[in-house]
């Protein structure tokens, strides 16, 4: 199919992007990597009047470390994050997750900010951001605000972003000494949206886990910080008993939707298996 008619504009500055968003509130869409937007246009699932191409905006690019926080610009390509020594050193969870993000061709164009702003519930990066307690900087002509990842995702493709707002960057705490992380997902094929996925992040003392952060994705309408499962592992030595407690807690708090790819029960089961394996792997990595 062919996309319906739309207008296209490629501003040279962040301010003009924000002005255009304000001017065309609700009728404009941001074009970054286009890896999700272009198919939805061609399938006529979305019919915006205006596409605002942000690829010329240098302020949205780059990856940097400032005061223990890694800043990832909204336009950073997945391939750039994947190859970034900074991300590898300070965001090992994201480095671990990135090879699971689609395929090389998609990663070459797809952007970090695009994945966050789209809020596909089966996407890896929103869940990583939730697990790492990242925050996002949103800008509009009204000003800037910073929103925690754990309250940014509202539902299926729905976020805290107002129609006149642009996601500018993600701010992610760099991994602190003593902490480890692991990412695991299960998909029918490599690069597919996962049937279930788990991000795990904690301080490891011997085999005792502290400050545990488990996030799950792939079944529900948004990534979930698994509070009960995280609490079940908190301060305890990892054992079969704790593993079962974490699995039971996940069973209690996850409420996925079944689809023809996998039922709700299967998705919960997979999340439980993956969570246990992720912690096993995290501990083994020491």
């Amino acid at each position: 199919m062919k996309a319906p008619r739309f207008s296209y504009v490629r501003p040279e500055s962040l301010d003009s992007v924000l002005e255009l968003l304000a001017e065309h509130e609700g009728e404009a869409r941001i074009l970054a990597g286009g890896q999700s937007l272009m198919p939805t246009l061609n399938m006529r699932l979305s019919e915006p009047r205006l596409l605002i191409d942000i690829n010329r905006i240098d302020a949205l690019k780059g990856i940097s470390l400032e005061d223990g926080t890694v800043r990832i610009g909204a336009l950073a390509r997945h391939a750039e994050v994947l190859e970034s020594p900074l991300a590898a050193e300070h965001l090992p969870l994201i480095a671990d997750a990135m090879p699971h993000v689609a395929h090389v061709a998609v990663r070459n164009r797809g952007t970090f900010g695009g994945s966050i702003a789209l809020a596909d519930p089966a996407a890896e990066l929103p869940a990583c951001a939730v697990a790492l307690n990242a925050s996002f900087v949103l800008a509009s002509t009204r000003g800037r605000r910073t929103v925690p990842a754990r309250s940014f995702f509202h539902g299926l493709y729905e976020t805290e972003l107002a129609e006149d707002e642009l996601l500018v960057e993600a701010r992610i705490p760099a991994i602190a000494p003593g902490y480890r992380s692991a990412f695991m997902e299960f998909a029918r094929r490599h690069g597919d949206f996962a049937l279930a996925g788990v991000c795990c992040h904690a301080r490891v003392e011997g085999c005792v886990l502290r400050d545990v952060s488990l996030a799950c994705f792939g079944g529900e309408d948004r990534p979930r910080f698994a509070a009960a499962a995280s609490a079940a592992a908190e301060g305890r030595a990892w054992s079969e008993e704790v593993k079962d407690a974490v699995k039971a807690a996940l069973g209690g708090e996850l409420e996925p939707e079944g689809t023809f790819h996998a039922s709700a029960e299967t998705r919960v089961h997979l999340a439980q298996v993956l969570a246990a394996r992720a912690v096993d792997r995290m501990l083994a990595a020491g």
Binding site: M43, R188, R189, H190, G191
Partner: peptide, 24 residues
């Protein structure tokens, strides 16, 4: 090709109709 009981195709794109790929 997954159909519901009313004859509606549920997976009519390459995102949902899975063909084997090199990695598998």
């Amino acid at each position: 090709c997954r159909y519901d009981e009313h004859g509606q195709l549920l997976n009519g794109s390459l995102a949902d109709y899975l063909v084997p790929m090199a990695a598998e």
